[in-house]
Write a protein that binds this DNA or RNA. Structure first.
Lengths: 369, 369
DNA sequence: CGGGTAATTGAATCGGATA
DNA sequence: CTATCCGATTCAATTACCC
């Protein structure tokens, strides 16, 4: 009989399977110290009040599932403590965990990770390239989610494939902010009725980066909130073993079907070609924020016939119009449109300088990283 | 004895000054409910070791081997609880707070904000365009810090200059991820020895965006960890009043010198793009009263599919409904609500004109008095 | 099949004044 | 406190539809 770390009733690790049940119970039944990586996307505990409509009067399909309802922060904290503790037990000593959340829950998860002795390695920001806007104009567009990457302990010799991520990032060090689109189109799984199969399906690109960065082929990746199985699909594709835990039969069915169709990809095909980065858009407001032009300063038109004053919010106020550098320029010239960047000039040392020079300066700083 | 909100020893609010002392003591001495906005950049865990006392008042030794991680968090949490509680007391009912931190402390601050009843409005990622690289290649480049923006309570009617931020972003609404460079160059304050005057000086561009977004001219902005006074400098420049609390004499001296040299920008450059919500309300009945539309005249929906007749009391009567311009519009579109001003059009010279034009005319007459 | 336009949709803590 | 009414408010990406 082989020596094993778990109690005698602990089953062998059920690699590449989807387990039915509550994730805390299931994890407690698995052998201690047996999993290389855990990726967890738990309920966010959104506290939505009424309905929300878009400006075109269509209704936003909210996440109102029972599994996201908690009575209080205290109840949510107890839930977090329980599943994180169960997750920690089954991690190998050099194992690591990723959790993802929004401001509703991520601070509580992060604090509890620290309380339990996990060692935070990075927090990572998933910057969504196409987030849902803020329809009422009452807050900032909620354009990101936060991931936390933590080792089981401070001493854990965690896996980090530095070079792989560097090449993913066109040869420069991967940063803690990742720009990736949300999961839409064909990748978004639908049920028979044609509706989304799961309200919060994550994009495969996100898991691809996580698993490429922090696991090796053959590693065991466990996801306690498996949903429709994005973690499993990417793990299988990348030659890692997965274990999914999911208590909703409907999600398990979708995930099982999905996983059956996933092909492991060849090692040489793993290299991903990143799309070329477009020249970053620079709003004129940044020129003001950065103090390159001062609110109240005057700009002159390229022909010298018009002037306008810079305001603190990056808008201009001219003789007859106020608005963006483009709008006010167009109004001055009585033209349908105008490139404000080349139209407006400021004075330095008696010379007229196009504001586009300031934009170029910002862009070169951005490129320099 | 008159009833007042602050304790009897509470002084008047010391606007535009830098106060010497521990921020918890100082805030507790200020009048309750008197501050519009708090911006706080508290010290991190590690930096506190030499400065903090344990709950039993024994001094924490920086090189104390008994200092374990758990106790470190416990003491940091007590510190966070104390200063956040003091901050909350002096906020106006509709006040708000910003805190900034990294993964070392921001999760604990966020959780405590929620525990105390602050209502998180957004978490904001300051994405550094020029971060320090991770030299050892063991983790991701730590390229961001996290800010949390929270109202004093869920019900607080917080200030948010939506249009101004939209303007800063050249016409599209501002997102929760902000790309701004770190504080370097001539903006970075140096001491006599030529070293940086403060280890974590924040860029003015960051404060510019925060204050432009969530305060109005004349508001009181308090910073309990004032450091070299970036919050005060930007507040003064933008015509807001500041209160800085700082216990290190060296930082206070640098901040005082800095603030003396800050010029407030002119009032007209401070004006910011206004929301339509600020415009005075015009009842549709005024349009009829003033004879701009005659009772009996027909209006057409924006899509041309519905019509309705104007009645003498400023209500409409359509095919299936009667009532206000908004109610009849909503009924026509089978929508939960409708802005009748932009929905309904009248005919002049064969052209369809939105009735909102008539409202604008009335408003401009009101402005002219 | 192509090209252009319209429609759909996404982890959302999304009013405020007046009676 | 609740109920009612006015009226302000969206970005990127994909898919569907039409000619």
């Amino acid at each position: 009989m082989t020596k094993k770390k778990a109690g005698k009733d602990a089953p062998a690790l059920p690699r590449n399977s989807i387990i039915d049940g509550d994730c805390i119970d299931v994890m407690n039944s698995l052998p201690e110290g047996s999993v290389d990586l855990i990726f967890a996307d738990p309920p966010y505990n959104l506290q939505l009040r009424g309905d929300l409509h878009r400006p075109d009067n269509s209704k936003v399909d909210a996440v109102d599932n029972d599994w996201d309802q908690f009575e209080s922060f205290k109840i949510y904290d107890e839930f977090t403590r329980a599943w994180l503790s169960a997750a920690r037990r089954i991690l190998k000593p050099d194992g690591a965990i990723w959790v993802i959340g929004s401001y509703h829950n991520v601070f509580r998860m992060g604090a509890e990770l620290q309380n339990q002795g996990f060692w935070i390695l990075n927090d990572v920001v998933w910057r969504k390239s196409n987030p849902m806007p803020n329809f009422r104009g009452k807050r900032l567009t909620n354009a990101h989610e936060t991931l936390i990457w933590a080792g089981k302990t401070e001493k854990s010799k965690y896996t980090f494939n530095y070079e792989a991520l560097k090449s993913l990032n066109e040869g420069t060090q991967m940063r803690s902010d990742w720009v990736l689109p949300i999961c839409t189109g064909h990748e978004r799984l639908k049920n028979e009725a044609g509706d989304k199969a799961h309200p919060t399906q994550k994009p495969e690109s996100l898991l691809h980066r996580v698993l490429l960065a922090t696991t090796n082929p053959g590693d065991v990746v466990l996801d306690p909130f498996f949903g429709t199985g994005t973690t499993g699909a990417v793990a299988k594709m990348l030659g890692r073993d997965y274990i999914g835990i999911e208590r909703e039969a409907e999600y398990r069915a979708v995930a099982a079907k999905r996983l059956a169709n996933v092909r492991k990809i060849e090692a040489d095909a793993l290299e991903v070609t990143q799309s070329k980065r477009a020249e970053p858009r620079v709003p004129f407001g940044q020129v003001v924020e950065r103090g390159m032009l001062r609110p109240g300063e005057e700009l002159w038109s390229i022909n010298g016939r018009h002037k306008a004053k810079v305001r603190a919010d990056g808008s201009l106020i001219g003789a007859d119009a106020k608005g963006s550098i483009h709008q006010v320029g167009a109004a001055c010239e009585n033209a349908p449109s105008c490139n404000g960047w080349t139209y407006w000039h400021y004075r330095r040392d008696g010379k007229k300088v196009p504001i586009d020079l300031l934009r170029q300066q910002i862009r070169s700083e951005m490129r320099a990283n």
